[in-house]
């Protein structure tokens, strides 16, 4: 399948347009298979400053700093990477009340055949809940506009927000 021009690319285009429409223009990312088309789209979209980071926590640092330039940063990553960020989120975003939006893959959910993501299916939602992080779960493409609401609301509440997007939405099949 042509990931950039096929359904995953179309889905990526929708997400990019929604983020732009919400006002986002700074994205830091680290790949997960499901979001590779989205990252490639952002790399070439002149409406965005995109920074590829070495590890997910670095995205937290960058996006938090970008807040002081008037931007609410977007960190794009897999669920596993997000789970490595809990310390950074609580130490930086919570301590200083700095908003940012996490867009992550809903790994480990039904439909994800990767056994090494079982732990994400078991613990991702409960970890998010345990740090009282506002979250939206998008498992149908018609719900993608929730991204814009989450982005804007992060700025209103001065806290990070996470949007977890399911496989079929990112693959453009649902």
């Amino acid at each position: 399948m042509d990931l950039q021009n096929g359904p995953p690319g179309v889905a990526a285009g929708k997400i990019v347009d929604i983020l732009h429409g919400a006002g986002a223009d700074f994205v830091a990312s680290l790949p997960d298979n499901w979001i590779a088309p989205l990252i490639r789209r952002l790399e070439t979209d002149e409406r965005f400053t995109h920074v590829a980071v070495n590890r997910e926590e670095s995205a937290v640092g960058l996006c938090s700093g970008a807040f002081f330039t008037g931007k609410t940063g977007v960190a794009l990553m897999g669920a596993s990477g997000f789970l490595t960020c809990i310390y950074a989120i609580t130490k930086i975003n919570y301590t200083y009340q700095i908003p940012m939006l996490f867009v992550i893959t809903l790994r480990g959910a039904p439909g994800d055949g990767a056994r090494y993501h079982v732990s994400n299916g078991l613990y991702l939602r409960s970890v998010i809940d345990s740090i009282n992080m506002p979250a939206v779960y998008i498992e149908k493409s018609e719900d993608l506009p929730e991204l814009a609401k989450a982005y804007k609301h992060a700025g209103v509440i001065g806290r990070p927000y996470v949007v977890c997007i399911g496989r079929d939405v990112l693959k453009g099949v649902r």
Binding site: E57, G61, C63, G65, A66, K71, A88, I92
Partner: peptide, 22 residues
């Protein structure tokens, strides 16, 4: 000065996010 205490290695990334804008 932004005193980013206890970030476990993210101070230069934080600074880069600010510096990019100015």
């Amino acid at each position: 000065t932004f005193y980013l205490e206890a970030s476990m290695s993210l101070s230069t990334m934080f600074a880069a996010g600010v510096a990019k804008g100015y």
